[in-house]
């Protein structure tokens, strides 16, 4: 009789099922029509199968986004789980596309699928990377901008995981403020 080690054939389940979305900027179509669901996964192995199969963020055309959200949450402000939320925003300069973009995005994905924020991970909705000529952006979206303790815990763990210097600060903005702003900057609700 052969005894098989379950580690050899059972995939490692994640806490959540995740959906990866792709946005391609085609000005002849509506914003929603440009957004496509690529795939869903709920194991460590299936996460890597997808990640290893798709283009790195730094190879995408300007105007494209990847979004990774918990199953059932759409990557838009209007979703019920997002509309009272906000995002920790990382803005990158042009040099950082080559130096930092891909490793920051992978680290962001690992924080999400690995539930790196402990109990506060329940407030994480997803993350988005925007590829833009004027500067790329990465953001972690959470569900409630008024949950100060959870939001700041998520921000400080995230900043540490990205290896950002202590003297550098990152800001958290509510989607309500971002969607109603008049200028190019949105006020920070929190900074870490």
């Amino acid at each position: 009789q052969e005894i098989v080690n379950p580690e050899a054939y059972i995939k490692h389940p994640l806490q959540n099922r995740w959906s990866l979305w792709f946005f391609k900027n085609d000005k002849s179509k509506t914003w929603q029509a440009n957004l496509r669901l690529i795939s869903k996964f709920d194991t460590v192995e299936d996460f890597w199968a997808l990640y290893n199969h798709i283009q790195l963020s730094s190879n995408l055309l300007s105007g494209c986004d990847y979004s990774l959200f918990k199953d059932g949450i759409e990557p838009m402000w209007e979703d019920e789980r997002n509309k009272r939320g906000g995002r920790w925003l990382i803005t990158l300069n042009k040099q950082q596309r080559r130096q930092d973009l891909d490793r920051f995005w992978l680290e962001t994905l690992l924080c999400l699928v690995g539930e790196a924020f402990g109990d506060c991970s329940d407030q994480v909705c997803g993350a988005v990377v925007n590829i833009r000529t004027k500067g790329d952006k990465i953001a972690v979206w959470t569900s409630d901008y008024e949950s100060r303790d959870a939001v700041t815990h998520i921000g400080s763990v995230y900043k540490q995981r990205l290896g950002l210097p202590l003297k550098m600060t990152i800001g958290y903005q509510s989607h309500a403020d971002t969607s109603t702003k008049s200028g190019s900057t949105t006020k920070n609700r929190f900074v870490v």
Partner: peptide
């Protein structure tokens, strides 16, 4: 409890042969 996986554990699976 929550299924939490740290980065090194997750990275260890990046190039594992696929499960069948």
């Amino acid at each position: 409890g929550k299924r939490q996986y740290n980065r090194d554990f997750l990275l260890g699976f990046q190039f594992m042969p696929a499960c069948v």
